[in-house]
């Protein structure tokens, strides 16, 4: 009987495909929350497998802060064309212009928290009843408690203390009008699993993940890319370094690491030797110990 078992990557893949198919079966209008980062690319790849040979039955929703890496937008548009999928963009700039949110001020200002309003508005106006995310439980301690199917009330809020128990493979996506769900098919994957799988499947990812030369400044121990949004401080100086990004978020807050890893093999090797979590380079999580949980309760990704 020995050949009849799955290795752990195959088992994770099978679990994710199962969850994606449940989303399709249980919801009317699900979307994939697409950030252009490796996790949402992975989810999209898995959705392709789950419904092959049909096209993926989900639109891709991008919450655009306006502070993007240009490479991310290019990648997104190419992928959309490739998949024949529909793109929905929620624009933070529009939310600001419409007075729905106020831009943060000061040197550490980001549009991170503003995304919540834009996201919830986009979910409501597009009548989305399930937003599929690339969140992983190993990313952060508040995420470690997420269910595969995570209920949001009609204010889009998460109540971590009152979650539905999730037993066996039975996923309860029942909800009332106005409420929605978040679904997390790659909950059980770690950063290492993601890289091993991307390597195994040879999945295309944005060039930003590979080591490249870039203008950067050192801030809070990470290399923040130079961009039109960057406000330099007196002591800060722009240098050119060979770096790559471990996660992709806003260009204003995503720090790179110095690296020579310019192939998937080298990245996987590098990640396996890492001594810092990937979010360690994101200033949004460094603000306070419960920064992520506070944002998540309000409706963040």
């Amino acid at each position: 009987m020995n050949k009849y078992y799955l290795n752990y990557l195959d088992e994770l893949e099978s679990e994710a495909i199962y969850i994606l198919r449940e989303v399709h079966a249980q919801f009317q209008n699900p979307v994939i929350l697409f950030s252009g980062g490796k996790d949402s690319i992975l989810v999209t790849h898995l959705a392709k497998k789950a419904f092959y040979p049909a096209n993926i039955p989900f639109a891709l929703m991008h919450v655009d802060t306006g502070h993007n890496f240009p490479e991310t937008i290019q990648f997104r548009d190419d992928l959309i064309e490739n998949l024949g999928a529909r793109l929905i963009v929620g624009s933070v700039q529009e939310s600001i212009d419409q007075g729905r949110v106020q831009e943060e001020k000061g040197k550490n200002a980001t549009r991170n928290a503003l995304q919540i309003t834009t996201l919830l508005d986009a979910i409501e106006s597009n009548k989305v009843d399930c937003a599929i995310g690339g969140g992983r439980r190993d990313e952060e301690k508040a995420r470690a408690k997420e269910r595969f199917f995570s209920h949001r009330d009609d204010f889009g809020q998460w109540d971590p203390k009152n979650q539905r128990p999730e037993l066996w493979n039975l996923l309860n996506g029942k909800h009332f009008e106005g409420e929605h769900f978040r679904a997390f098919p790659i909950s059980n994957w770690t950063e290492m699993d993601v890289w091993n799988y991307i390597k195994r499947e040879n999945i295309e990812i944005p060039s930003l993940y590979f080591a490249h030369e870039r203008e950067v400044v050192l801030r809070n121990g990470s290399w923040i890319p130079n961009s039109e949004y960057l406000q330099l401080e007196d002591h800060e100086e722009i240098l050119t370094k060979k770096i790559r990004f471990r996660t992709l978020g806003d260009i204003t807050i995503t720090g790179g690491i110095e690296s020579d890893a310019d192939t998937l093999e080298k990245i996987a090797l590098e990640v396996s030797a890492m001594r810092q979590t990937e979010r360690g380079n994101r200033t949004d999580d460094k603000r306070s110990e419960t920064a992520m949980e506070d944002r998540k309760r309000e409706g963040y990704f």
Binding site: D138, K141, A142, A144, K145, K161, N188, E289, E293, D294
Partner: peptide
């Protein structure tokens, strides 16, 4: 992981680790 737990020093929900 969660705020209340760290304050009260108890585990209040299922947390997954890898």
């Amino acid at each position: 992981g969660l705020k209340d737990e760290r304050e009260q020093g108890i585990t209040i929900d299922v947390a997954y680790r890898y």
